[in-house]
Design a protein around this nucleic acid. Structure first.
Length: 594
RNA sequence: GGGGCUGUAGUUCAGACGGUUAGAACGCCGGCCUGUCACGCCGGAGGUCGCGGGUUCGAUCCCCGUCGGCCCCGCCA
């Protein structure tokens, strides 16, 4: 019978127990040895005393860090003055009566729970050791509780957990597919799903009405701190619903998660921001609303500006927008301001105009001498600027000005620590455009995906003004990260056909690529809609981590390589032969073995 | 595809104008220690300075290339 380290307490004093786990710390005092024993529940101090049990004491002498042991003994209160407030079991200890070494451990490539940050490649190579650390272990246990809570909630709400294929069809829109060659159909390939989108819609046609899945998705794109080639989505779909129904279930779910896992009561309903307003005020479709630095439009104020960069741009139809950094005069030296210029140039800005706000709201430095009293008073009023602030201006196309200022406000907030810690800002962004024009492809493309329903009110202008059409889609944003998105889908094959037409996807192509969904829509598809959440990203934010790698058990490096398993790797020629595959000459250069 | 930072002992980091034997801390090995908890004290081992080439009398340091790691842009419906 085995007991866990943190299962016992002072009330167990005098009782005998057996513990099994790892030697976390080893402190040899000559005639007395302490070890901190770690199991998945926590830590317990064990004492070996040569005068009390010489047999086990001799074995204890051989123990080293991370040895696996089984130790039996008696629980006792620690002598006065030797308790450890830092440990949950710090008031007690186990006096060992017998000990058995279950397994030894080689010298560690890095210290577990070491405060200094160990090179991530080494940590990934020995991931099993890194996962012994409290931080990563707690993250994964949290993840398990998180997914359990979701399943419990959705099952109670009448959702069915239904699996969809991993070996599926490559689809043209969206991200690059991971391909899997078919041995039985040479020259044909499966694709791993970017998401179960088409299948969950088909499940609605089948009449399940409420579906969910916590499912792996695959996208062969470049990696980032918040992007892995395989990641986990909470995928949901419902029949006979409107936007409000999807939002309502989502909000209830998130309220539950925050309440049960973080002890935080979320305010409901969540804030809802129009896409246009998000772009206008935050320069982003995933605004971080934890801090100010709101972008303001000053185009009307500077319509008659004597500053040519402002005047000419406005005449061309551009905008002048600005953010005000409170106390910026103190925070930034002249050199800092100069450095900001190169920062915003990286963001795509042509320049960076600025003014300091001095006494009585008068402007100093930068472009102040080109600004009239009237322009200044209006700008100060609109930005609610106070003396000591700095105002940064962008005069450019609406798109560029908003993008630059949106990124500038994030940059400034991070650099000058304006983001309050421990705060969670959840909000919806709605009324996205249905389409946008792709310069690269020289055609109209979907902002969300081609099955997203246009907003009812815009159906009349669908063909005349497609770029003005809004969609019935919604994104959920947490602390400036997009953590989920979804839409009401098109369930009318005729409307779906029109959308493909606008996207310049021919009926033949549409049939080839999505034919099975289009067929299904023709057999009594109910109105339906859904949403999908990035599980890893949510966990990253809830756990206050800076990378999703820290909430994934076995993540990959930025080159999509797994140092633990050495994947991907070359395969034997016979394997390729079976698949009917011959490598191109250029592919051979990087092959290391076999 | 592009930009930035980076690679020195098992780990985290120093290092020098280009010049004897490349240092520290932690870890590891050995010894001492009965109340520690990142125990302490004494001693010891441990280095292809990522890899390849070049310049040089001499390169860990300078130059070129290459491989890897992290962050970002593009990309990610």
């Amino acid at each position: 019978m085995r007991t866990l380290c943190e299962e016992i307490s002072e009330s167990d004093t005098g009782k005998e127990f057996t513990f099994k786990g790892w030697v976390m710390h080893y402190r040899d005092h000559g005639g007395l040895i302490f070890i901190d024993l770690r199991d998945y529940s926590g830590i317990l101090q064990i004492v070996f005393d040569e005068n009390i049990d010489n047999e086990s004491f001799k074995i204890a002498k051989k123990l080293k860090n991370e040895y696996v042991v089984s130790i039996a003994g008696t629980v006792r209160k620690r002598p006065e003055g030797t308790t450890n407030a830092g440990l949950k079991t710090g008031g007690i200890e186990l006096l060992a009566k017998s000990v058995q070494i279950l397994n030894a451990c080689e010298t560690l490539p890095f210290q577990i729970d070491e405060e200094a940050e160990v090179n991530e490649f080494t940590r990934l190579k020995y991931r099993y050791l890194d996962l012994r650390s409290k931080r990563l272990k707690d993250n994964l246990i949290f993840r398990s509780k998180f997914t359990y809570l979701i399943r419990e909630f959705l099952n109670n709400k009448g959702f069915f957990d239904i699996e969809t294929p991993f070996l599926t069809k490559s689809t043209p829109e969206g991200s690059r597919d991971f391909l899997v060659p078919s041995r039985l159909n040479h020259g044909h390939f499966f694709a791993l799903p970017q998401s179960p989108q088409l299948f969950k819609q088909i499940l609605m046609v089948s009449g399940f009405e409420r579906y969910y899945q916590i499912v792996r998705c695959f996208r062969d794109e470049d990696l980032r701190a918040d992007r892995q080639p395989e990641f986990t989505q909470l995928d949901m779909e419902m029949s006979f619903v409107e936007i409000e129904d999807v939002m309502s279930v989502t909000e209830e779910l998130f309220a539950l998660i925050f309440n049960k896992l973080l002890g935080i009561e979320l305010k409901r309903p969540f804030k809802v921001l129009d896409y246009d307003e998000a772009m206008d005020k935050y320069g982003s479709d995933k605004p971080d609303t934890r801090f100010g630095l709101i972008i303001n439009n000053l185009t009307d104020v500077f319509a008659g500006s004597q500053l040519n960069v402002f005047k000419d741009n406005i005449q061309k139809g551009g905008v002048v927008k600005a953010v005000c950094l409170p106390d910026g005069s103190n925070l930034l030296s002249r050199k800092d301001i100069d450095e900001l210029l190169s920062v915003v140039k990286d963001f795509g800005a042509k320049g960076l105009a600025w003014t300091k706000v001095g006494e009585n709201g008068l402007f100093e430095g930068g472009i102040s001498k080109f600004i009239s009293d009237d322009e200044r008073n209006k700008a100060v009023a609109r930005l609610e600027a106070k003396s000591g602030d700095i105002i940064f201006y962008q005069s450019d196309s609406k798109k560029t000005a908003e993008n630059v200022l949106g990124r500038l406000r994030l940059y400034l907030a991070k650099k000058y620590r304006l983001i309050p810690e421990g705060r969670f800002d959840l909000l919806w962004v709605v009324n996205f455009p249905l389409f946008e024009y792709s310069e690269e492809e020289k055609r109209i493309v979907s902002v969300h995906h081609p099955f997203t329903s246009p907003a009812k009110k815009d159906l009349g202008i669908l063909e005349k003004e497609p770029l003005s059409v809004k969609s019935d889609s919604y994104d959920l944003v947490l602390n400036g990260e997009e953590i989920g998105g979804g839409s009401i889908r098109i369930h009318d094959p005729e409307l779906q056909g029109k959308i493909f037409e606008i996207l310049s996807i021919s009926p033949e192509d549409a049939k080839l690529k999505f034919g099975f969904l289009l067929d299904a829509l023709g057999f009594g598809a109910p109105p339906h809609g859904g949403i999908a959440f990035g599980v890893d990203r949510i966990l990253m934010i809830l756990r206050n981590e800076s990378s999703i790698r820290d909430v994934i058990a076995f993540p990959k490096t930025q080159k999509a390589y797994c140092p633990l398993s050495d994947a991907p790797s070359a395969v034997k020629d016979v394997q390729l032969k079976e698949l009917g595959i011959k490598l191109r000459e250029t592919a051979g250069k990087n092959i290391k073995s076999e």
